[in-house]
Nucleic acid binder design. Structure first.
Lengths: 133, 133
DNA sequence: GTATATTCCTACTAATTCCATGGGAATACG
DNA sequence: CGTATTCCCATGGAATTAGTAGGAATATAC
């Protein structure tokens, strides 16, 4: 239950790698080799992280990726949401009047609470915390 | 991210239904109709809940299901684990020495913490909490 | 003891999501 | 110009989830 997709695990490991570069950049293929991540797959993952503004990139020879911010300023929830979208245990989290009958939406508050517990943890941790743990 | 399978949502709604029966039993088909759950699918779900000891059942005419314990004594984590297994964000939660190289297992502590946050919430809530929320 | 309502068991299919892979265009450096 | 890199789009296989189907076993009521 609640297993984390490889995409997210790969993404975090890639960011850990970048955080250790101390400001200099690393190429996708280089990270992939060091971390044991399928190279082509990682390209896409880094693309998503770039779109979300978590990393910067430079093309061409000597190009590569680097963190957009310091590791202490990168919250884990940003990373997770960039790669997999918002934490959303069930579809009807917001809308309290979806179901006309039955107990369909009764557990809604319960799921909202679960989202709160998960979000709270992910917001409390930064990339630096992960590296130093 | 972290979406809850329909099986678990259905299972919880079925238990909510049973909790409201005040001790008397309800047939699977009856619950399915009232809650808008595919009948044959619900049969299997109730079977799992029975195997886990969360409900009791009686066969034959006038048979059906009832809660094995009072709603205030049924923790939500029991229900989730009965239907989907243990909360396990990543595979290598226990073994701290799985990965020989790379940053594969560095984030382990982070995932252990996430499991703790989720488990903590699910342990703190009972079926009665869900009904009364 | 027969009809009926129910759980219980096993297997199967359909749909969806996850996990990549492939080919090549655009860009930058030397 | 040659090479290393990001970037973009499409495709395919694997795994999981979701739901169906058929019928055996069991209990009740008449």
């Amino acid at each position: 239950m609640f297993s984390v997709p490889t995409k997210t695990q790969y993404g975090i490991r890639a960011l850990v790698h970048l955080a250790r570069m101390e400001g200099s950049s690393a190429a996708s293929a280089e990270i992939a080799k060091a971390e044991g991540i399928p190279p082509k797959y990682l390209e896409g993952i880094l693309g998503q992280l770039k779109t979300a503004g978590l990393v910067h990139s430079e093309r061409g020879k000597n190009g590569g990726y680097r963190l957009a911010r310091s590791a202490s300023d990168l919250r884990m929830i940003e990373i997770v949401e960039a790669l997999e979208g918002e934490v959303k245990p069930v579809g009807c989290l917001d809308d309290s009047a979806v179901c006309a009958q039955g107990d369909c939406c009764l557990p809604r508050i319960f799921w909202v609470g679960l989202k709160g517990a998960i979000d709270g943890y992910l917001e409390s941790k930064t990339l630096l915390d992960v590296i130093e743990s």
